[in-house]
Design a protein around this nucleic acid. Structure first.
Lengths: 180, 180
DNA sequence: CTAAGATCGATACGATCGTATCGGAAAAGG
DNA sequence: CCTTTTCCGATACGATCGTATCGATCTTAG
């Protein structure tokens, strides 16, 4: 048997390149060739990892979801998690753009929505658990509100409608008011 | 002088076509040719109205913003406006998709962000006025929170993470809690 | 009626896209 | 050593994109 290649690690490597480019031009604006160049592999290599471009994007969405989720389980309080989800810090601005890009794409290209819903469900579950531990009434409702608020604030920061500081203040106020 | 054409009304007609197509394939996925076909004009006519595709998209963003804003000034209460902004009703689902599509595009293509910020600023101002009339403390903050919450909920409905009913419930609960 | 000029729509062009194809390099088993 | 299988990357292909060009057509002022 000849050469064997670790396709899974290569897939991740390519997914990273997809994210970098999606951050710059949006996910529809990334071409297979640019991805290949960014990932330092040939176009053929990308094609061998993913039969089609959509398959590649799908993998990338899932990949991003994993990364965000990984950062969260470490945190403890509702407020910390919310701030983490909101991706307000400068160093997470790129991740926020990627996320928004995929969300918008998913609203129009149904297949992409699957992995996204998965990620949101996981976040929701985490927030429900924390809300329950905090003794809040209606944890599912509070979780939904917090998640939507965080997402909306992130978007408004990306657009430039709010500054990161303003968004953070709004989020903190909301969390502070949760104890009724 | 020969034939004179009302370019402005044609621009609006084309913008409508852009919206219809952006709702189906996203704003990057609409081609000049498809727009022309949808607007029942020739490709040349579109080119004469807008020198470039970006110019056309920019006009379309502004156009959508106007339409949403027009529907709002009629309403009165904070809650009504919020529900209207959230675009939760089925018949506004298309507008919501268009809006999200442009927002995502703007996060990556800076020129598009201008008209969007304009629209958001107008909405913010309206909410601030209503919040002030309701005697709330910190009207700007509450307005920002409400706008972000509505936006986030809309997004989550579009993705399929929440049902319209769940989103509406969250929004109503938040508004109800505004009186402290 | 006629000439001038705005509008028209068809067509051309070059670039870029996703995908398919294919001969050769590389590596492991016989 | 040689065959076999896997991987490689260059190239080809057809479609579609945004944009530019151009002669025909229509409208109106004189």
């Amino acid at each position: 048997m000849p050469k064997q290649v670790d396709y899974d690690s290569r897939r991740r490597q390519i997914a990273e390149a997809v994210c970098l480019l999606a951050d710059e031009h949006g996910p529809e604006g990334v071409s297979m060739r640019d991805v290949a160049a960014r990932a330092q592999v040939s176009l053929g290599a990308v094609q061998r990892c993913f039969r089609t471009k959509e398959e590649m994007l799908l993998f990338a969405v899932h990949h991003v979801g994993e990364r965000v989720r990984a950062r969260l389980t470490a945190d403890a309080s509702l407020g910390q998690v919310a701030e983490e989800v909101a991706l307000l810090r400068d160093e997470h601005r790129a991740q926020a753009r990627i996320w928004l890009a995929f969300v918008a794409q998913a609203a129009v290209k149904e297949p992409l929505a699957g992995p996204l819903r998965e990620s949101y469900a996981a976040l929701h579950e985490l927030l429900v658990r924390l809300a329950t531990e905090s003794g809040l009434a209606d944890p599912p409702g509070e979780a939904r509100a917090l998640l939507a608020l965080a997402d909306g604030l992130t978007t408004h920061v990306l657009i430039g409608h709010l500054s990161a500081e303003q968004a953070e203040a709004v989020l903190r106020t909301h969390v502070a008011g949760l104890g009724k």
